[in-house]
């Protein structure tokens, strides 16, 4: 861990400028709400007529607010080229997200954002790119893949390694099928626990890393998932020779304000809300290996 001031911009795409009143949500309307898996769901939001729509970058998140219930940080999983529709996919695990799972088309949701740093999609042009997603971690990576695939010719080999708990937990099946069919993108999906009719890979996502083709010296890796998975993934990538300066991770911490005022999301010198959630791995490596920081 260094004492250098966190530079939010380094290694990450420039994020749009922050809102003038970062503390007050803007109402958006739910145009689609649907279940993805047993415990995950997607909300698609459109702005109220005449409302300002702010661009977002892949990797950024919004604070979604339900009046009287609470507010949660949720990464944006839609296409950055179409900021007029905000897509959020999340797990129903806490008081707020469980209520959110019951939201229907036409309901209103408060939105603050977008906040945080972005995946280095543009600065990775010319490189091989390996995406490693675990569980719901595919949601924050989807915008980066979407953006990259819209300019596929600018990249070398592109690989997505995706691990889920069981076959039932696999997110975005339709998107994965389309990507497989339409793009030069190698996708490997694996599950920790197979079910009877599962014909795909079994084993943790890290075990896929040794077998996929990429040029380690010219590879950028973007990782999103549980912190345990992130640490082991980095280890496997480093074993293949991918430098820590070319590995980017998205982290999660408690967030109340999303702009560095509330103090909750601190990780050493970093405010995960504004210096992250996407970090070059070398900036957080020591912190992730320390307990209860």
């Amino acid at each position: 861990m260094t004492l250098a001031a966190p530079e939010a911009g380094k290694g990450a795409a420039a994020a749009p400028p922050p809102a003038r009143d970062p503390m007050s949500p803007t109402p958006w309307r739910v145009c689609r709400a649907f279940r993805e898996t047993d415990d995950t769901f997607t909300l698609e939001l459109i702005p109220e007529p005449g409302r300002e729509v702010r661009p977002f970058a892949a990797g950024q998140f919004n604070m979604l607010y339900l009046p009287g219930i609470g507010e949660v940080p949720i990464s944006i999983s839609g296409d950055p080229a179409y900021p007029h529709t905000l897509v959020h996919t999340t797990r129903a695990v806490g008081a707020v997200t469980k209520k959110m799972a019951a939201i229907r088309r036409g309901d209103s949701v408060g939105v603050r954002g977008p906040f945080g740093t972005a995946w280095p999609v543009e600065s990775s042009e010319g490189s091989d790119v390996v995406f490693v997603a675990g569980g719901i971690g595919l949601a924050p990576l989807r915008p980066a893949l979407t953006q990259l695939l819209s300019r596929r010719e600018r990249y070398g080999r592109v690989v997505l390694l995706y691990g889920a708990r069981t076959p039932e937990d696999i997110l975005f099946r339709k998107t994965l099928r389309e990507w497989r069919a339409d793009f030069d993108l190698e996708i490997h999906v694996t599950v920790d626990r197979a079910t009877r009719d599962w014909r795909g890979n079994v084993g943790v996502v890290t075990s896929l890393i040794p077998r996929v083709p990429f040029e380690p010296g010219h590879t950028v890796a973007m990782i999103c998932g549980p912190e345990v998975m992130i640490r082991y993934t980095v280890m496997e990538l480093e074993r293949r020779g991918v430098g820590p300066d070319r590995i980017h991770v998205s982290l999660e911490r408690n967030m109340k304000c999303a702009v560095g005022f509330c103090g909750h999301c601190q990780l050493g010198p970093h405010f995960v809300c504004k210096d992250g959630p996407v970090f070059p791995y070398e900036k957080v490596a020591a912190l992730l290996n320390q307990r209860e920081v």
Partner: peptide
């Protein structure tokens, strides 16, 4: 890692 069952409790929102 399989034992940890990391997507269960440690999952991201």
């Amino acid at each position: 890692l399989q034992l940890i069952d990391m997507y269960d409790k440690g999952g991201r929102r």
